[in-house]
Design a binder for these strands. Sequence first.
DNA 1: ATCCGTAATGTAATATTATAACATAAAATG
DNA 2: CATTTTATGTTATAATATTACATTACGGAT
Lengths: 166, 166
Amino acid sequence: MTKSISANAFPAHEHDHTVCIADALDSAEQHCVAHQLRFTPLRRQVLEIVWSRHAPIGAYEILDELRNESRAAAPPTVYRALEFLVDHGFVHKIESLNAFVGCDRPDSEHVGQFLICGSCHQVGELDDPEIAKLIAKKAKTVGFDVSHQTIEVRGVCSNCAGENHA
Amino acid sequence: MTKSISANAFPAHEHDHTVCIADALDSAEQHCVAHQLRFTPLRRQVLEIVWSRHAPIGAYEILDELRNESRAAAPPTVYRALEFLVDHGFVHKIESLNAFVGCDRPDSEHVGQFLICGSCHQVGELDDPEIAKLIAKKAKTVGFDVSHQTIEVRGVCSNCAGENHA
DNA sequence: ATCCGTAATGTAATATTATAACATAAAATG
DNA sequence: CATTTTATGTTATAATATTACATTACGGAT
Ligand SMILES: [Zn+2]
Ligand SMILES: [Zn+2]
Ligand SMILES: [Zn+2]
Ligand SMILES: [Zn+2]
């Protein structure tokens, strides 16, 4: 089974989310084994919290969750775990929200192109090389050499657009 | 004289920046007159500070400048002026830097596509409708209806790339 | 197994960015 | 000029993020 371009985008409202979480944790674990990274209990716990929904979660909300799960935690606890998870592609930071969202494709090098629904607040990830290439090309025309792209798009997802029955 | 697509991108190091500032203030003033907006002394002062360079400036740095210019100022003073300036397109917020940069094209509706140089920290603005259209189109393929785009690209500008003489 | 060096986490304090709430002043309207 | 609205002043606080240093856990050597 090949994942479509919208693999990480806006799962159906009724989907079995425990599967999303389990898959993401498994995938991260495998990636860590393969790359000699330490997928410590804390990092796993933070990743699980981030994956608790398909919407971005703030660092301090993660902190609260950790404490709920009776783990000693302070801001650096969270930010350090997030740094690891972001560095290795398990989590993306949504800059325009100062919040974090899970990514289930740690292996593929990709710029995250994020679709942020203003209605349900879920975030889908488009991973479209054409967009990345066009931007790099256009930047090049003014002599700019691109190393990283931040793309965050606001709008309304298909789930929410279909709900106009008021 | 027609402005090129890179009008706002990476002016030459030796350019007459007082002209940039004067033009930006004039342009903003004209836009405000035309649209019945109040270009108050505070808003003008903040815009001038933002335009002091072609690199993003943080709100608290603006605050310091205001106080240097012996104006009573507190965070809301700055954030409210910035809100006005951003709302009307005189300034853009760079989300990935929590900082603000001037825009000299308040009239044209545009998504800002920002090129952020990691070397000189200047920011150029690409205003390319093709990029915006491609993103909107790709988002549409997953049923997402785009209302706003945040595009911030890291890399090295042409000025800095040319300076490799170490 | 013990030692050692490194990487991860714990902990306290603080820095940075942003907003809420309410008072005052200035401007637009009639 | 009285009224209403808009902008600004002022104080406090919320929300986000980092620094610095102590402690613990891990991985690789002997
Ligand atoms: Zn799910
Ligand atoms: Zn939605
Ligand atoms: Zn200039
Ligand atoms: Zn540069």
